[in-house]
């Protein structure tokens, strides 16, 4: 399966989904004009990937500095999808990465965490070098 790579723009994050490694990363800011449209290739890719993957451990890293309301709804949908996949036997860990001084990102991570039942969700603090 092809990897999915989307370069970052001013208002949208860097996306790198690597099927071989089972590593899915979204990094940066997320306030695209049309969040549903922007993330639709991500969901298409993920649907296909989750259909094909068997016992590979999947690592999802999210490092979102700032996101708008539409994006947070998209993330809820994404987590919902991953949660269901875990209930169906997939091995998935989500790391919600935030910088030490970014209280808002941490609080949002906590908020997302409450929503999840099956998938492992870690809050990972990134210290500035």
């Amino acid at each position: 399966m092809d990897n999915l790579v989307v370069e970052a723009t001013k208002s949208s994050p860097y996306i790198s989904f690597d099927a071989g490694k089972g590593l899915l990363e979204i990094k940066g800011k997320s306030y695209p004009e049309n969040a549903a449209k922007f993330y639709s290739p991500v969901f298409d890719w993920l649907n296909e990937y989750l259909d094909t993957v068997t016992d590979q451990a999947i690592q999802v890293n999210l490092e979102i500095i700032y996101f708008n309301s539409s994006s947070s709804k998209v993330f809820l949908n994404l987590f919902d999808m991953l949660d269901r996949a875990v209930k169906n036997g997939k091995k998935i860990t989500i790391d919600w990465r935030y910088h030490t001084e970014n209280d808002t990102a941490r609080e949002c991570g906590e908020e997302f965490m409450e929503e999840l039942e099956a998938v492992k969700f870690n809050l990972v603090e990134i210290h500035e070098e």
Binding site: Y66, F67, N68, S72, K73, L76, T104, E115
Partner: peptide, 18 residues
């Protein structure tokens, strides 16, 4: 309703941050 509350909370936090 649960999602709406979460989204409003996060939106508020982001707006305060901005």
């Amino acid at each position: 309703l649960r999602h709406t509350k979460q989204l409003v909370k996060m939106g508020d936090a982001m707006q305060s941050e901005l």
